[in-house]
Design a binder for these strands. Structure first.
Lengths: 331, 331
DNA sequence: CCTCCATATGTTAGCGGAAACATTTCGTGA
DNA sequence: TCACGAAATGTTTCCGCTAACATATGGAGG
């Protein structure tokens, strides 16, 4: 920076201004300084910058999922991709944390923040409980939850997609097609998602005038787990006529189990997924599904976090993104 | 740090030593300092650390792929996960870059390094040419290529899996089963991978005593693209008896096209994949494939990079990881 | 012609640490 | 008993940058 200043014949503070607030400089000086910057190929040292102005232009994205869990779900890659892109636009950087920590979540997050590794965190931790969230909230660490907390009155920032509405739409869709025996191949219990889905489906069933049989089964979000369950369900006496799956990978297991049992989709058994990630294409017939547009989550969360870090005091983030149903040929 | 020093009754440099080289301190002082650190919940500021000792304990992982490209391939998530985990073990951090840059690759990489955002880079840029690599090599930026460069004598660090050997094994496997009409559903031409695969298969065909018909077709690594090609290929007069795919997603397209044409796998048409990522499970019958163990790439690359950053002068990294064939029921 | 204020630039003092060097302490062998 | 070197600790300076304040410059208005 001093070299640039010398070459341009100005003070080093002027160089700093040329970089950070060019509008404060006269056009002539600005041009001089910029020429010198170009000539010397100067790039500011971000460590020194954050030390001096005490803001850390890095967002941590925390996704403590196993390979197996992630594998089934485009969600995670999509999230990191959109966050990364958004960061780049604002001269921020994304730090990714996928490893399961040795220490407790709260402790880790506090540490990362205190060490100035990140200016704030985006968290996808389904297993973080209300107490932990509250604890983190009362610390100074800025964070946004991806997926809303179990306790809705917790006064924390979050973005979520309206999974309950999606499930409701999916169930309604089946009911409209005349189905009266519906099963929900749901996500594991520990995911708050699973409760949203169940409640959405149940509400739709209750709203229906006639009686509806509703079965709920929890599955891991893996092909193997889903397939095992579906085989059993389809072989049983009480085979439902319509199946709602938490995820398009699980929809594939329905297809396979149906194939094996020589059942046709949608004639003998209908399938609809409340979430479409990367497996969507592979399904045959074309899968009716709820389009969550989950790519939007990363954008909203990252934008909010950057505002927080830059002390722009954005309003609280309590966003639940709407979803829509895309009809395919599987129902 | 000064607070800790005061509380422990030592100088701040002693605190620094307690953190970075505890063996230099007497057990008594070390204990005192550590107690003070705990009491005050002190965490060193990494920005200040890198400023003072001018090493940046961050590794950048660059993966400029579109959603569409990534979707088909577990490779990318697996890579970031293993690198991230490895980084965590050494108190390093992973910065992820998936966005396609506005500027040129080389320019971007130099900038990231000069700005001290990263201490070094792990690069997966299939479209980076020999000239660019050479240019980057002659700069000060430490980097490791994921996948080896087209020009083998380029004097750069890289890790790769032995795709040519994998393709060779796959072809041999089919030849041993008696196939004499083989097609390779290959990756796009712009990926260096595609050349490795072709050469591997060709070599196997040549080594075979009898004449073998060999067809090569390039496809994007998407279901749609593969399916279109496979439908045409299977419908054509010259339908091959054995198909080698670049990827397990493409293997699924073979399955689907075969189903549609009422062909059985493996009786009427055999399939083997030279790469198994997340789509593996979904295939029926069980897919014969080359197991590349690509998770190892991230580990090797990250370990090397950390040594470079910590100035441990590791020997040049020219690693080509071996692969093995796992026989399923699709051949 | 002078005051006053907005605009443009320079100066000083850290941000939180670690390297390099200086100093003290202490055990050891002659 | 004392010199001597290793081990333990302290002091100074600087890493590269920006906030806060100080100063210069120029034009409008009285």
């Amino acid at each position: 920076m001093n070299d640039v200043a010398r070459l341009a014949g100005v003070s080093s503070q002027t160089v700093s201004r040329a970089v950070n607030s060019p509008n404060l400089l006269s056009p002539a000086t600005l041009a001089k300084v910029r020429r010198a910057i170009d000539l010397l190929d100067y790039h500011p040292n971000v460590a020194a910058q954050s030390l001096a102005n005490r803001t850390v232009k890095m967002i941590g994205l925390f996704m403590p999922f196993t390979q197996e869990q992630v594998k089934s779900n485009m969600f995670f890659h999509s999230l990191s991709a959109t966050v990364c892109q958004r960061c780049a636009q604002h001269d921020f950087v994304l730090q990714l944390f996928t490893a399961n920590p040795d220490e407790s979540y709260v402790r880790l997050f506090k540490r990362l923040y205190r060490e100035k590794r990140v200016g704030g965190l985006l968290l996808t931790c389904p297993s973080m409980n209300t107490k932990e969230i509250g604890e983190l909230r009362s610390s100074a660490v800025p964070f946004v939850l991806i997926g809303r907390p179990a306790a809705p009155d917790l006064d924390v920032d979050y973005v979520d997609v309206d999974n309950a509405a999606g499930a409701h739409m999916a169930a309604q869709h089946l009911l409209n097609k005349g189905h009266r025996d519906i099963a929900l191949l749901n996500a594991p219990k520990f995911m708050t998602l699973s409760e949203d889905l169940r409640s959405g489906v149940q509400r739709a069933c209750q709203e229906q005038g006639e009686p509806v049989r509703f079965t709920e089964i929890h599955s891991e979000l893996t092909y193997k787990s889903g397939l095992e369950i579906m085989r059993r369900l389809i072989a049983s006496d009480s085979r439902p006529t319509g199946i709602i799956t938490a995820d398009d990978l699980l929809a594939l297991t329905v297809k396979r189990a149906a194939d094996e049992a020589r059942l046709r989709i949608p004639e003998d058994i209908a399938v609809i997924s409340t979430f479409a990630s990367g497996w969507y294409d592979v399904m045959e017939p074309e899968l009716t599904h709820v389009d969550t547009g989950f790519e939007r989550i990363g954008i909203v969360a990252a934008e909010h976090m950057m505002k927080v870090i830059l002390k722009k005091n954005p309003p609280p983030l309590r966003t639940v993104l709407d979803v829509k149903l895309t009809e395919g040929k599987s129902t």
